Amino acid sequence: MPRYSEERKQAILSKLQPPSNMSVAEVSRSEGIGLQTLYNWRNEARQQGHPMPGHNKTPDDWTSETKLATVIETAALSESELSEYC
């Protein structure tokens, strides 16, 4: 089983987030990584407080922790970067 650096994991997980918003299945196919591995990485990232998309597709369905993490993550973005993020 291949080992991935934390930087590589973060780069792969970033594809699940805006602006890419790829599904786990799409990332799995494009990166050649197993679905369960990606789900495990996503769950680990959530436990560490990183906002990660999932079954809750709209911000209205997000937990308070996810909303706060998103606000903190995007606070330093410029208007154009924030627009791209959204």
Rank of each mutant, 00 (worst) to 15 (best):
H50K: 15
R42H: 10
W41H: 08
I12Q: 03
S20M: 05
E84R: 15
A11R: 12
N43H: 11
N40C: 03
P51W: 07
N21W: 03
A76D: 15
E79D: 13
E65Q: 14
E44F: 02
E44G: 00
V71F: 14
L38G: 02
R46G: 02
M1Y: 03
H55M: 11
G34C: 05
E26D: 07
L13A: 05
M22H: 01
T70N: 07
N21L: 07
N56W: 12
H50T: 08
V24C: 08
L13N: 12
I33P: 04
P18C: 12
P51M: 06
S78M: 02
E44C: 10
S78P: 03
E7W: 01
E7S: 11
H55Q: 13
S83G: 14
A76T: 12
E44S: 10
R46K: 15
I12M: 10
L38E: 09
E79T: 14
N43C: 00
P18F: 01
S83R: 15
A25H: 09
Q48K: 14
Y39M: 10
E79K: 14
Y85K: 14
N56Y: 06
S20K: 04
L35K: 06
Y85C: 07
Q17H: 01
E84Q: 11
C86Y: 07
D61H: 05
T37N: 14
R3P: 00
L16V: 04
G32F: 02
S30L: 14
L16K: 04
Y4T: 09
K57F: 00
T63M: 02
A45D: 02
P19G: 09
L38K: 01
T74I: 05
H55Y: 13
I33Q: 08
I72C: 02
N56L: 09
G34Y: 01
R8N: 15
Q17M: 02
R3D: 08
A45C: 01
P2A: 13
Q48R: 15
A45R: 06
E65C: 04
S14T: 11
L13C: 04
P18G: 15
T63P: 00
Y85W: 13
E79R: 15
D61S: 12
V71D: 08
Q10G: 06
T37I: 13
T63F: 03
R46N: 02
T58Q: 06
A76C: 10
A11S: 04
I33T: 09
W62T: 00
K9C: 11
G34I: 00
G54E: 09
T74K: 07
G34F: 01
L16A: 03
K15L: 14
P59Q: 10
I33M: 08
A45N: 08
R46A: 01
Q47N: 04
T66Q: 15
S20H: 13
Q10T: 05
T58E: 13
A45E: 09
S64M: 08
S83Q: 07
V71H: 10
S80M: 11
R46E: 11
C86R: 14
H55A: 09
E26K: 12
M52N: 08
